[in-house]
Write a protein that binds this DNA or RNA. Structure first.
Lengths: 192, 192
DNA sequence: AGAGTATTTGACCTTGAGGTACAAAATTCA
DNA sequence: TGAATTTTGTACCTCAAGGTCAAATACTCT
């Protein structure tokens, strides 16, 4: 009972994640957040408590979505190198298509955040681990399928692909050189 | 002539770079900047014009220093893989030894920055290119020395090492797992 | 010493961040 | 219909960011 909510909290968290991704945590004001959700600032605080609490919820939702997307790509029935290439190319192309180069909320937050923000650091740590785990499992499977040499360390490969992916998403913030980025992807795929 | 400066502008820019590295651009206030330089806020504005101008100078100095450090390591007369390992390990260890995981000003700025900040984006772009170039040249030399297969693309390898390096410095913000980070370094070195 | 020049400082200004308070509005239940 | 409950939105609060300014200070040159 009581007055019905004007907005869908789920959608709001999703929209907030996008706002944080585009403008960053520090540069997103409660007012702009409220505006982007189409509600008053008071309602926002009533519903979410604080900017930081809303941010944590947004970040969590974002990591969930991202992980699902990653799994979707890695679950495709194609050669492992094709899937990894698709993954890296997808991120790079997405970033290049955005003139503001906003990039990935997880990467952005990992850098912008203070180490003292423990809940956020934990969320990010879990997200990075989950990503690595998906890659790790895919590489193990690929080894069993004979696509990757059995003497390679699948976990280390997962870490290498992950760190290259993150590095690419940072590099793309200051360059639009598709050849250069593409050759990095080539090298990453070749390293598997 | 005129009243002599109370501080050394060179040292001040260096100190400012460190403050920006530790706290980030947005989170560094003119007041704290002035405090860290041991001067009044007015003096700071008189000497540097604005927070942003000081930031650009700081960033430029930082990139110069960083590039010199990189060259120093890559100029050592040791096997290429040892040098690359030393490079990556050095950054990771430095970051791990800092409880606040402040990391690298260039990486941090590339992420925190708005794409609309053209002078900063240019500086960062040049810095990333210069870094890649040093690695590129080192790999070419290593190929001539027979340390790296001649059929590898040295520029792509440079890009891969660079992006892994950046990725590692982001990952280390949320993890302290030396084994995991170490195995990523192993994989990166093995990929050369 | 005095003129001229450069630097220093704290006081002051405007703007907006992050958040609170409260009365009005919209619903359900009896 | 009225009571209870919940959400809404504006007005308001405090604090600090980023920056400006004028007066005081410290130097050089003549």
């Amino acid at each position: 009972m009581g007055r019905p909510k004007k907005f869908d909290p789920e959608k709001a968290v999703e929209q907030a994640a996008e706002t944080f991704r585009v403008h960053g945590y520090a540069e997103t004001s409660p007012q702009s957040l409220a505006d982007s959700l189409g509600i008053g600032k008071g309602s926002l605080y009533h519903a979410f408590g604080s900017k930081h609490e809303l941010f944590l919820k947004s970040l969590e939702r974002y990591t969930d979505t991202q992980l699902a997307d990653l799994k979707a790509v890695m679950d495709e029935g194609r050669p492992i190198r094709e899937r990894v290439r698709e993954l890296l190319t997808g991120f790079v192309e997405a970033d290049l298509n955005d003139p503001d180069r906003c990039g990935c909320l997880v990467v952005n937050t990992a850098v912008e955040l203070r180490a003292s923000d423990e809940p956020a650091v934990k969320l990010l740590g879990r997200s990075f681990e989950a990503t690595e785990s998906v890659l790790h499992l895919a590489f193990i499977a690929a080894q069993h399928a004979g696509e990757i040499d059995a003497d390679r360390d699948p976990k280390a490969l997962a870490g290498l692909v992950q760190s290259s992916m993150i590095g690419l998403r940072v590099l793309v913030k200051t360059t639009s050189d598709r050849d250069r980025l593409g050759s990095i992807i080539d090298a990453a795929v070749a390293a598997i």
